[in-house]
Simulated scan of single mutants.
Amino acid sequence: MEKLPALNVRNAALSPCSNDPVTGFFRDGHCNTCAADQGLHTVCAVMTDEFLALSKYFGNDLSTPRPEFRFPGLKAGDRWCLCAARFLQAHAEGAAPQVDLDATHLRALEIVPMEILETCAIDADPDAS
């Protein structure tokens, strides 16, 4: 599995998303991707209780530890590389978590419009219209 170039949605070098817990399709702390990453785990998001509950409701329980997969379970405040389609679904439901644009892979734009990512960005201006 060859990683695609590590560029973020700002077309700059991809920043790390999280090493605690270790995230990413390659479990390298980055939202890197490759052709085998069918879920496109490219959006670096900050977990919220609301998003974790929604994800569990949609069948992807990210809160429960799964030691057999070396997965600690996530809690609010953890950063995680989300599937771009799940992020877009959460946005449509009004439960999108904040995202780190510097750590969100460029390929996320194949599914999520930049305008949506920008409105959810950690550094977004809440008063911008």
Score class of each variant (00 low, 15 high):
Ala124Met: 15
Ala124Leu: 13
Gln98Asp: 08
Asp49Ile: 09
Ala92His: 11
Asp125Met: 06
Arg66Val: 13
His91Ile: 00
Ser55Phe: 08
Thr64Gln: 09
Val112Phe: 01
Phe51Ala: 04
Thr104Trp: 02
Lys75Gln: 14
Leu62Ala: 05
Lys56Gln: 12
Glu93Thr: 02
Gly73Ser: 08
Leu117Arg: 15
Leu54Gln: 09
Phe71Val: 00
Arg70Met: 12
Leu88Tyr: 04
Trp80His: 09
Arg66Lys: 15
Leu52Gln: 03
Ser55Pro: 01
Thr104Ser: 10
Arg70Phe: 14
Phe51Ser: 05
Cys44Trp: 03
Met47Asn: 08
Pro72Thr: 03
Lys56His: 07
Cys120Met: 15
Glu110Val: 12
Leu109Arg: 10
His91Gly: 04
Leu52Asn: 04
Ser63Leu: 06
Pro72His: 05
Pro72Asn: 02
Ala121Thr: 13
Glu50Ser: 11
Cys120His: 15
Phe71Lys: 00
Gly94Thr: 06
Gly59Val: 05
Phe71Met: 00
Ala90Glu: 08
Asp100Phe: 05
Gly73Tyr: 04
Leu101His: 06
Ser55Lys: 07
Ala53His: 13
Glu115Lys: 15
Met114Trp: 13
Gly59Cys: 05
Met47Gly: 08
Pro72Tyr: 08
His91Arg: 08
Leu109Ile: 12
Ile122Phe: 14
Leu106Pro: 01
Pro113Met: 10
Ala85Arg: 12
Ser63Ala: 15
His105Thr: 07
Glu118Gln: 15
Cys44Ser: 05
Trp80Asp: 03
Ala53Pro: 02
Glu118Asn: 15
Leu82His: 00
Leu62Met: 09
Pro113Gly: 09
Glu118Leu: 15
Thr104Asn: 02
Lys75Gly: 06
Ala85Met: 06
Lys56Asn: 07
Arg107Trp: 14
Ile122Tyr: 14
Arg66Tyr: 09
Thr104Ala: 03
Lys75His: 13
Cys81Lys: 02
Phe71Asn: 00
His91Trp: 10
Asp78Tyr: 09
Leu101Tyr: 02
Ala45Ser: 11
Ala76Gly: 10
Pro113Trp: 10
Asp100Glu: 14
Phe87Glu: 01
Ser63Trp: 07
